[in-house]
Computed example of a mutant assay.
Amino acid sequence: MMTAALNTNDLVRLSRNSTLAGMLALLVLCFLWEAWLAPLRPGSLLWVKALPLLLPLPGVLRGRRYTYQWLSMFILIWFIEGVMRGWSDSGALRYLALMEVALSVWVFCFAVLYARLTRAPA
């Protein structure tokens, strides 16, 4: 019987790829939500809320530990917005907000995991 144990390098790669995938999914969700799926009113510029997610992208792609550290706090903006809109909105908007919450938690968890796995030994 063969066990599939993950070593540290596999976990680092998994956390890095998962963080990137979550960020891109959240970027697409925020853009589509405010621009096409359920804009508050025609011509609304709320889709701009997705653009700050591009700020940590270069550091995430390069695997910079510091970027992952501040990303873990930065992503909480989308978590808070998702919780507030999930609480106050109804119908399809509530489900979009819950997806935003889930994706922000996903990014948070994997960014923290990456930062933890790549820290210097004591």
Rank of each mutant, 00 (worst) to 15 (best):
L55G: 02
A50E: 01
R62G: 06
W70L: 06
L76F: 10
M73A: 15
Y66P: 04
Q69G: 05
W70H: 09
L53K: 06
Y68D: 06
L51E: 01
S72H: 08
V60E: 02
M84Y: 15
V83D: 02
L53E: 04
I75W: 03
L76I: 14
R65H: 09
T67H: 04
V60Q: 10
W70R: 08
W70Q: 09
R64M: 10
L57E: 01
E81T: 13
P52C: 10
L55D: 00
Q69P: 06
W78H: 15
R62W: 06
L51K: 01
T67K: 02
W78R: 11
L55Y: 06
F79Y: 12
P56E: 01
F74T: 07
L76T: 15
P52M: 07
M84L: 15
L54Q: 01
I80A: 12
V83E: 04
L53G: 03
M84A: 14
I77F: 15
S72G: 12
R65K: 12
F79E: 04
L61I: 13
G63T: 07
L55R: 01
W70E: 09
L53S: 05
P58F: 05
L57D: 04
Y68I: 01
F79A: 10
Y66S: 14
I75F: 06
Q69A: 11
P52E: 07
G82Y: 05
Y68R: 06
G82F: 07
W78N: 13
L57Q: 05
P52H: 10
I77P: 02
S72T: 14
R64A: 14
F74C: 11
Y68W: 12
P56M: 08
P58L: 10
F74S: 08
G63W: 02
Y66C: 11
L71G: 04
L53H: 07
W78D: 12
I80D: 11
P52L: 07
G63M: 07
R62C: 11
R64G: 02
L61Q: 09
V60N: 00
P58I: 09
A50M: 11
I75V: 15
F79P: 00
R62I: 07
M84C: 12
M73F: 15
Q69I: 12
L76W: 12
L55P: 00
F74Y: 15
L61M: 13
V83R: 03
W70S: 09
R65V: 04
Q69L: 13
G59A: 10
Y66T: 13
L51T: 11
G63Y: 04
Y68Q: 06
L71W: 02
L51H: 02
T67I: 09
F79C: 10
I75L: 11
G82H: 08
P58D: 05
I80L: 10
S72D: 10
S72F: 03
L54V: 11
R64P: 01
G59Y: 08
L53F: 07
I75S: 03
T67M: 08
L71C: 09
T67S: 14
G82D: 07
P52K: 10
L57H: 00
F79K: 06
